[in-house]
Design a protein around this nucleic acid. Structure first.
Length: 716
DNA sequence: CATACAGACATAAAC
DNA sequence: TGTCTGTATG
């Protein structure tokens, strides 16, 4: 194969990155600048030109989708199968490492992975067993604490209570949680990474082995890495390997999930002499869209600095629509969609983006009325569905009787007469004897401490699991699954469901198909079932099956990252909604919101529509919105305001800012006193001068809108 | 033990 | 306002 195909289609900086000599390299790749292309061509270059054995490279992504895409594109370019390449997600690769070295990592050979749902259940049960009230200590908070510590690489022993009783309790819970996981042979997502990191950090032989093996380590979306992922990379790269990382600080939108943008700077410090390549030429959007995006992101102070440009056309101005309310906003968007579709555009070329999921409903209703097919991203994914998780719990219990969360999940599904009291007795025994629920159940039955009926029901359950194990031990994986879902009564149980029975049974059938199509790793010594169960957690499946028909795409700004559409609607641009109230309090949060806006704008190829609603019904109450500051950050000459024919209100960018509107000393959050209504807090404000109005929540009189000129509010 | 109702809650989400 | 969870009830 000739080198031309690898190098020819690249621009200068792309080529520089792809053909870079073997030294640490940081590629700052702007939106739409060919980031994936650079990674794919770099790998092709290393193999074809540098003669690197595929065995000796490691490529890491965040999502299975990205990993699959990379694989596919490498195969297309190299005409070469990639099954044996180490390309995968951080979690997938960590999992692989732990399976290979489970002894050294201190894990059971058949350890299983818990998803966040399983994790939360486990935390709930832990709190209950300690008789800690959920109102006093929210399970979510405990879960969040544990995950945050793991993301930072900290074990309970590394934590200091700092004379804080609440913190001390959290640390204690973290310790107990770890014990439960270890006993049940369970590993959560954070644990996969942390364990893998500790394995490399503490075991010199293994570390040396992988450092020597992986000459090149490539990382995608580097701005999304957390502390452990970074340490992991550093351990793996060692002195002899070459890290090649690609990222964009302007697209870092996952700080709340543990991501550390600082890792980009840290990389330059930890690998002195690292080459830095900037990809700034954009192949996606019009000049107008890029100028707008550049202008918005320029308001951020913490940046490495980058400016997107294009050789393409200027394109249409960005259209701005000020809707009366959220229904009007949706109607406007749907009318534009109808126009585009009538004009010959495919529906899946149109995307409606919003800040929070709750906003989708109004658009869905409007699209439904207009008879336009749409697809909403997000929501329940395949392997997260209750019927699927129940089926998997049976399989997990068959594989490992000590898997307490699975035991609890299915001990009475379908209902077999094992009630809450019976389960409580089993838990009690497990706590007393310090064993798993499975063993405790057997002990409770033997001790004859239960009513005969309960005892029998429990006995039936234990027998069922043993029987399923015996009956399926020698079957192929798909037959194993098929037998379990039928003989356990799960299919019959879900089939009875009047509302969703049909689809639930279909899903269970789908699980059997998935098992049928599952290719277990030939090198692995583990039973295929164990591998399949891990696969099910790590690859939790798409939200929805592939579109049957061409449909409009509805999703949050977060889930739009990495995608592109000819036409993009960014909706709900109101202060408090976008930027979101809960992120706008500190500058770091606000900057992340701004990056989110940047991500939204740069999704569009040809045309962007921005909308906001002057009034929005949210959680049952009306809110009067102020246009998002992000609108004002776009240069006016790039914007064109679309007004309904009857409109009378002023154009948004000439509208006085909130501060001017309330220059009389009344600010949001300000305490004020009114002659008649008493004291209250200013919630909202709009208009200016003689028309300026504020919304005040009075302690006694409730929420009221008042015209400042008349109300004679006293600032407190 | 299934269903009905009351009350809490509501940013984003990959593995 | 809608959804989800936990509890009360037949």
């Amino acid at each position: 194969m000739d080198v031309t195909a690898i190098v020819e289609p690249l621009n200068e900086p792309q080529r520089e990155a792809v053909t870079a000599p073997a030294r640490p390299t940081l590629v700052l790749a702007g939106a739409g600048s060919g980031k994936t292309r650079v990674l794919v061509h770099r790998i092709a270059w290393l193999i074809r030109v540098e003669g690197l054995s595929p065995q000796r490279l490691l490529a890491v992504t965040f999502t299975n989708k990205a990993a699959a895409e990379m694989r596919q594109r490498i195969e297309a370019l190299l005409e070469f199968p990639t099954q044996h390449f180490w390309i995968g997600t951080f979690h997938g690769l960590a999992h692989r490492l732990l399976r290979i070295h489970c002894d050294e990592a201190g894990l059971h050979a058949g350890f299983q992975i818990m998803d966040s749902d399983d994790q939360l259940r486990l935390v709930r049960r832990l709190l209950k067993s300690l008789e800690i009230d959920e109102n006093e200590r929210a399970p979510k908070e405990v879960q969040w604490f544990i995950n945050a510590q793991k993301d930072d690489g900290l074990r309970p022993a590394n934590l200091d209570a700092e004379d804080n009783a609440g913190r001390a309790q959290l640390i204690d819970l973290y310790g107990r949680y770890e014990k439960i996981c270890a006993d049940a042979g369970l590993v959560d997502f954070g644990e996969l990474l942390l364990r893998a990191k500790e394995l490399l950090a503490h075991n010199e032989a293994i570390r040396a082995q992988y450092q020597a093996r992986f000459q090149h380590v490539l990382v995608d979306e580097f701005q999304d890495t957390n502390a452990i992922q970074y340490d992991w990379l550093k351990l793996l790269a060692g002195r002899s390997s070459t890290p090649f990382v690609v990222g964009d600080d302007d697209q870092s939108i996952y700080r709340w999930r543990g991501a550390r943008v600082e890792n980009l700077q840290k990389f330059q410090r930890d690998f002195p002499g690292a080459a830095v390549v900037r990809l700034e030429q954009n192949y996606r959007s019009t000049g107008t869209i890029l100028n707008a995006a550049n202008a918005v992101i320029a308001h951020n102070s913490e940046r490495l600095g980058k400016n997107l440009w294009t050789e393409g056309e200027t394109g249409e101005p960005i259209k701005l629509y000020a809707a009366f309310n959220e229904r009007d906003e949706a109607e406007f968007v749907v009318n534009r969609i109808v126009d585009f579709v009538t004009g010959g555009m495919r529906r899946d070329e149109l995307a409606v983006l919003y800040r929070s999921n709750a906003q989708s409903r109004v658009f869905e209703e409007a699209l439904l009325i207009a008879g336009i097919p749409y697809r909403v991203y997000g929501g329940m994914r395949f392997f997260e569905r209750a019927e699927i998780k129940d089926a998997l719990a049976y399989l997990r219990l068959i594989a490992n009787r000590d898997d307490d969360p699975s035991f609890e999940r299915i001990v009475n599904v379908p209902t077999r007469g094992v009630g809450a009291r019976t389960v409580e007795a089993v838990r009690e025994e497990a706590r007393r004897a310090g064993t798993s629920l499975w063993r405790a159940a057997a002990a409770v039955i033997t001790a004859e401490r239960l009513a005969k009926r309960s005892s029998n029901a429990l006995w039936q359950f234990l027998r069922l699991i043993d029987q399923l194990d015996e009956a399926t031990g020698s079957l192929a994986l798909d037959m194993q699954v098929k037998h379990v879902v039928n003989a356990s009564g799960l299919v019959a149980h879900y089939g009875k469901d009047k509302l969703a029975g049909e689809s639930r049974v279909e899903n269970i059938q789908e699980l059997i198909s998935a098992a049928q199509g599952f290719l277990a790793d030939a090198e692995s010594a583990l039973p295929p079932l164990i591998e399949f169960l891990s696969y099910a957690v790590l690859e939790s499946g798409d939200t929805q099956a592939e579109d049957y028909e061409d449909s409009v795409q509805l999703m949050t700004l977060h889930s739009a990252k990495g995608l592109e559409f000819p036409v993009v609607f960014v909706c709900g641009l109101e202060d408090g909604l976008f930027p979101h109230q809960r992120s706008a309090t500190d500058s770091a949060g606000l900057e992340e919101e701004r990056r989110l806006c940047y991500v939204g704008l740069t999704r569009a190829r040809q045309q962007v529509f921005l909308t906001y609603a002057e009034q929005r019904r949210l959680y049952g109450t009306d809110n009067f919105g102020v246009p998002s500051r992000f609108i004002r950050e776009i240069p006016q000459e790039l914007l064109e305001e679309v007004r309904p024919a009857m409109a009378v209100s002023r154009p948004v960018y000439r509208r006085e800012s909130l501060q001017e509107a309330t220059s009389s000393g009344v600010r949001l959050g300000q305490r004020v006193r009114h002659g008649k209504f008493g004291e209250g807090i200013v919630l909202n404000a709009e208009g200016s001068g003689a028309h300026a109005r504020v919304q005040v929540n009075f302690e006694r009189a409730g929420t009221k809108w008042l015209v400042l000129a008349y109300a004679k509010l006293e600032v407190m």
